[in-house]
Write a protein that binds this DNA or RNA. Sequence first.
DNA 1: CGGTCCTCTGCAATCGGTTGCGCCGACCCC
DNA 2: GGGGTCGGCGCAACCGATTGCAGAGGACCG
Lengths: 354, 354
Amino acid sequence: MVDKVTGPRERVLLRDVARRANVSGSTASRALSDDPRISVATRELVKAAAADLHYVPNAAARSLRVRRTRTLGLLLPDMRDPVHGQVASAFEQEARQQGYCVIVVAGERDLVRERLALRIFAEHGTDGVAVVASVLSPRELRERVDPDRLILVWPDHRSMPRKAGKPIDGVISTDDESGVRAAVEHLIEQGSRRIAYAGDGVRASNTIRAEATAATLRSHGIRTPMRTLVAASGPDRANVLAADLAADLPDAVVCYDDRLALELMDALRGVGVQVPDDLSVVGFDGIPFAAIANPRLTTVAVPSAELGRKAAMMLIRAVHEGALPEGELLSVEIAIRDSTREPSAGAESLTPHG
Amino acid sequence: MVDKVTGPRERVLLRDVARRANVSGSTASRALSDDPRISVATRELVKAAAADLHYVPNAAARSLRVRRTRTLGLLLPDMRDPVHGQVASAFEQEARQQGYCVIVVAGERDLVRERLALRIFAEHGTDGVAVVASVLSPRELRERVDPDRLILVWPDHRSMPRKAGKPIDGVISTDDESGVRAAVEHLIEQGSRRIAYAGDGVRASNTIRAEATAATLRSHGIRTPMRTLVAASGPDRANVLAADLAADLPDAVVCYDDRLALELMDALRGVGVQVPDDLSVVGFDGIPFAAIANPRLTTVAVPSAELGRKAAMMLIRAVHEGALPEGELLSVEIAIRDSTREPSAGAESLTPHG
DNA sequence: CGGTCCTCTGCAATCGGTTGCGCCGACCCC
DNA sequence: GGGGTCGGCGCAACCGATTGCAGAGGACCG
């Protein structure tokens, strides 16, 4: 059933629909929005007229009057990264299903661009705004956007204020600490003792993962201090890391995220280090490619689709109820694969420098 | 410079700005849009007032009046896929730099959802629409959207009408054929003769790549007919493919895209086939993970960021000039890496079943 | 000093739906 | 048969910015 547009592509207005149905504009408007005051007969008449004419309401006119746009703003660093792409897709899908459309802006982790994004949202009168992994402070965000229609998808839940140990209202994050702890405990079970952390210097969520790694080691009585490596930026960062590691090989390395882990594994092959035989590698995020890497990457899988979907749901709820819903801390799951040694291998005796 | 919102978060209108600057609303409006008729003094006065009051214009009201929204619609299959994520990011960035914001909808390759997307764009009065890899026909798209403000990012340029061998106006695609040809010639140079193609049954752009593979073989005098494998959908698809291949190993396999190639390489490891020693594998797209796979994947790299950027540029040009700019066929580049045999290996003698 | 031109600004209409309020006719009951 | 009630519908104001047209006031010229 193709809505073939016949004749010139003229605008058809509500009044055209009304005229064709022999009713007034107000009646047409009410009929189309299923106002119970309009008789069924009239309603059907109007709807038929609207369909015949291929009537498309003008959102700008409606928004102007009702002061709602049924539009949501989504601010995220970018969409290249599989995690953010997944979040954006899920967010958009949930929003659309609830009758909202979404304006997305990629802030590129840039203060100016992110502020511009919020300004754009304000001009377009978005009913709500979701901000993912922003470089702006929560404080500034709440100053620039009505806090009651703002959802923060925050990677580092520790940096957020809490209430009773739970994230505060309107904030959704993932339980990175538990995930990292599980991963590190897995490494320890397999006999790893000298465990390093390879971080990303610029990401806000880096610290929490590094500290969770260190804390887990301590809580398991491992006295060797955790070695921390920091990836510079630039295409060469993984090679530098690999060289550093190869010079004094630990048993395992926990990486900031899957991308870094995969890059590192690639670079390690260049310096003759075998994963997992010489070194176990753990990633973070659970991107699809981690599962088909060689070796398959053990990783802490974050529910990115759920993150996006929940953000949209919470935001829309906030819009309808005028107040923020409870914050949520989504649990993560560790996916144990082949980049970490099998326990049966008797890892301890295989440990170099052991 | 945080725009601290002082007092209650009341709406500040143009008339508030005007009152504060002791001018009328019309003067204020003109001053803010740098109308030359307004004296410099007044203009500065108004701008200062606007800044003081944190005035944010109401896009709905403006759009209603000027019949332009400075909004673009972007319809794509999803944003999880690195290629589409890249396209979306680049599109949004270019659009934003030119003062447009973008409403994105993930159509999920679903006819109904894609039609809904176009309807959403129409309601919101987008000034232009870009459609990436749609499952709707170009014909239907042009019926539903004003063709003069519609840019098609079309994977299969052969399915599009041409003018003088070039893509028709408003269409942007990639030269898949040349890319595949280069890749296959690379395989042939390395001594591969028995070359298979592993396709994706549901993608429109599958055929062109398969046929380009076959054509290249023919044009190089290779009489062995190309074997074509078709990946089913489902999580198991790569295993099926790998089993098929292992049963009668060709010299090389050209894959529909990088994702399939990577999945296939993973599955091949499961059945003991070594890449590239037993089998060369070629991907398509040039996603970042192809470069750090193990082995690093030889692939036909598509300029996805350029695709998005150009689409936005063309679309905005179309909006301003009222007519479609020339179509473009972006060239692709083959990235030769480690998933294809080194020529020095004397491939021919190594060919199984040779 | 009057007239003319030009610069700067204001009035009011307009964009296209939505909605408070009131009207009209029908039906019902006494 | 008159008054009350109620369902169904229309009038007109309204949302907030833009803009054609015209007026006010100053400068300049003869």
